[in-house]
Design a protein around this nucleic acid. Sequence first.
RNA 1: CGGGCCGUGGCGCAGCCUGGUUAGCGCGCUUGCUUGGGGUGCAAGAGGUCGUCGGUUCAAAUCCGACCGGCCCGACCA
Length: 588
Amino acid sequence: MYWSRLFIPTLREDPAEAEIASHRLLLRAGYIRQLAAGVYSYLYLAHRSLRKIMEIVRQEMDAIGAQEMLLPALHPAELWQESGRWDLMGDNMFRLKDRFGRDLCLGMTHEEVMTALARGELRSYRQLPQIWYQIQTKFRDEPRPRSGLLRVRQFLMKDSYSFDLGPEGLEISYQKHYRAYCRIFHRCGLKFVAVEAHSGAMGGTESHEFMVPADAGEDSIALCTQCGYAANLEKASSRPVPPAVADPDVEAAPEEFPTPGRKTIAEVAEFTGLPESSLIKTLVMVVRGEPVLVLLRGDHALSQTKFEAAVGTSEFRPAHPDEVRQWLGADVGFVGPVGVRGIPVLADEALRGRKNMVCGANRNDYHLRHVTPGRDFQAEYRDLREVVDGDTCLRCGSRLEVKRAIEVGHIFKLGYKYSESMGLRVLNEHGREVPVIMGSYGIGLERILTAAVELYHDEDGMALPVSIAPFEAVITPVNRADESQWAAAEQLYNECRQLGLDVLLDDRDERAGVKFKDADLIGIPYRVTIGRKLAEGKVEIVERRTRATEEVALEQAAGRLQEKVRQQREWLEQQAEAAVSQPAATVG
RNA sequence: CGGGCCGUGGCGCAGCCUGGUUAGCGCGCUUGCUUGGGGUGCAAGAGGUCGUCGGUUCAAAUCCGACCGGCCCGACCA
């Protein structure tokens, strides 16, 4: 392609609204333009890159026997009502009515539609297993779209669905996806980790997320530096670091003491001179309209997902200040579990066995000391605490790290949730009707691109992996007016094309600096500079990421370039192979 | 859902507080010349309902109100 004929609207200056690197660079490099909050147009370069990503995804999905389809994005409400998710999805679902007033929605995901398709067609266990997939636009009305392409309201997803006769079959389909996903992300050049995850609104039992550690990410993950344990923070468990000081070894009853105006854990700790780990943090939650006390060590935080699991519902919220006053007779900041009647108390495991701690006295401006769980109050112990950086791994005792990460893929064992609610059954070998067990598996395609930009960029722009860059190389004649340079450039361009290389020819009548800057910005992995060295019959091959420069004879340039591209691709392929031959410890 | 910030040629911004000629600047764009290895220089141009609606005023980009749009932070941290 000739650059002068292409629409690549690069910007010299950073767009004002973009904060994170990928957003800024994708805008500046002319990959994307915003249409509305969380809605983007993918221009030529982005589309080229996404096509390459899709091609990798297709190859790997096809390789595990998955069949590509394309299902509607417009769904009738009835399907979602059947699964119970019409209400569950709430405001996240785009809803609309047709001219007859019938309720419709835009697809956020396709469990319902796939299940509906399957129940109409699958009759016999002999037809199983099946893996069906599509690459399609999904719509989610996010409460807060942000960070460029990281959290958007319309995006491309590869979603697949497996149908098996029983758990063993599902396990196989799940493993196939796990490996295919590892291959896909490696081939796209991403550094990622597969983590245990929470199933959320998808339902089901087991699930893994594929996470690319990056500061711009919106998820947090816990990683063991030694044994490979990895989990979404929502799900992660750990052994907490011990309390900063040991509990006083005395036999003493709870005793009130004044703590005027000290409401927060930090204030009470400072006032008493005790570390936060010697305090009990008391949260008042409202679960289905009823109060619940939640106790944590002062330096710990409540995990919402663990709490949700503990109470068995997502219908909970922190209590309002007046509710706290009404139920406990004191303001937020001075409440505690001692003497409380008729309100269930959930305590985090980290409080088990502690003694002589400090908590609120249920009297304003007072706390209690010498409070011993089990003696001074009763509680149901659960793991409710969010893992923090520096905790100890439950498996191996090493140190856990907490990092930000971008979720690029998520796989779920759905079990029988949809087949039972929607009536997907087949006859087994005994002629009996049995529900089909399902899995669902998603990849966010633009997130692969976004994560790659977050991972691989510098001051000058992006440096994309060769497998997903919009072009493999750009040929840059330094001086467009120089006839010999131009002739050499066209010659090299044609040779590259004949070798099957995906090259861009920068034929613009611009100064060298402009062309170099643009090439750096849009992140093409290799640039061939045709300039003053041409007098000696030589051109330069420059690697974008390292700036490593190699001089080669013009006649050998195409071959050498092909070689470099091939080496890069082979390296990515080796990563993929290695990943598959060494399945992660977290699987299965 | 709570909080903060921002809407002025394609992009980045100034002007607004203290209302008053023809609304500026840089980049980009067009034309010509120039230059030719990291966003070249010179010259001449084109391009703006100042987000929308309403109000105040002799007069509104500027003051007031409502609305629309966008960005950021938070949404357990007691």
